[in-house]
Amino acid sequence: MTFSPTERALQILALLARAAEPVSARAMVEALDVPLSTVYRHLQILKKWGWVQEHAHTGLYEPGPMSVQLAHGFDQHSWLMQAARPELEALSSRTGESAGLLCFLHGHIVCLDLVESQYALRCSFVKGVARSTIRGASAKALLAHLPEALVQPLLVEALPDTADQPGNTAVMQFSACLQQIRERGYAVSEHEVDQGVWGVSAPVLLPRAQLIATVSLMAPSQRASHHITEWIQQTCLAADRIRQRLLHR
């Protein structure tokens, strides 16, 4: 696939945004399959505009100060965040658990917002962090409402052949699970992403099944076991209220 210079620059920004630590120019070359000279040319422009900064001692690259302004603008002015934040806070207050808003972006599950529980919870989701996964209620609720042409390659990559189960069988079983989630209207998981954590996730869908995000509630399995039906209902209602807010903006 051929990418324009603008797309190459955006690929570099996306790579830095998803990276857990600063990245070298040579690592970008390997990840993006482009010449080193091309990477440096784009980095110089991105540094000039403050989107990227270079560590003075290591020479590694990381997001620059302009990224902070963009993130702040998203939090303060995004139509989605303005509609979702009050409902996340209300859901967390009603249940006493952590409530998050997540979306699917270029093969990753991204946490857009998170209202944390007053109780300690070991959860992998962190605001602004992307995860490459098909596991967990949030991922399944999103995958269930994405186009099949987009989902199938992800499943094939994530569910390779094993000695006891061929890859195509695993993909078919997972696809059937996604169909059940579509029919039911929510996804539930336990111990899939974090041991001891239960989760439920309901999609925010606009007309013509346009997927915007998913609302997720996460809690320790022991506490959740006493409230499963209630919390599933509360999460679905929160997703629907966000949908209504978006429709009437």
Rank of each mutant, 00 (worst) to 15 (best):
M1S: 15
M1F: 00
T6L: 15
E7P: 01
R8Q: 13
Q11S: 14
A14T: 04
A20W: 01
V23Q: 00
V23F: 01
S24T: 08
P35E: 13
P35Q: 10
Y40C: 08
G50Q: 09
H55I: 06
H57C: 04
T58Y: 04
L60W: 03
E62W: 10
P65W: 03
S67V: 14
Q69K: 14
Q69L: 12
Q69H: 12
A71N: 11
G73D: 01
G73L: 06
D75E: 15
H77M: 00
M81P: 01
P86I: 03
P86E: 05
L88A: 05
L88K: 00
S93D: 08
R94V: 09
R94Q: 12
E97Q: 13
S98Q: 05
A99N: 02
C103P: 00
F104C: 06
L105W: 14
V110H: 03
C111H: 09
V115N: 10
Q118S: 14
R122H: 08
R122S: 13
F125W: 10
K127Y: 08
K127N: 07
G128Y: 13
R131W: 13
S132I: 08
L143G: 04
P147R: 11
L150C: 11
V151G: 03
L154T: 12
L155N: 10
E157V: 04
A158C: 10
T169W: 15
M172R: 14
Q179W: 02
Q180C: 00
E183I: 02
W198N: 04
W198L: 03
A213T: 12
S216D: 07
A219Y: 02
P220Q: 11
S225F: 11
H226V: 14
I228D: 05
I232H: 06
C236I: 07
C236K: 14
A238F: 08
A239K: 15
D240F: 12
R241F: 06
R245G: 02
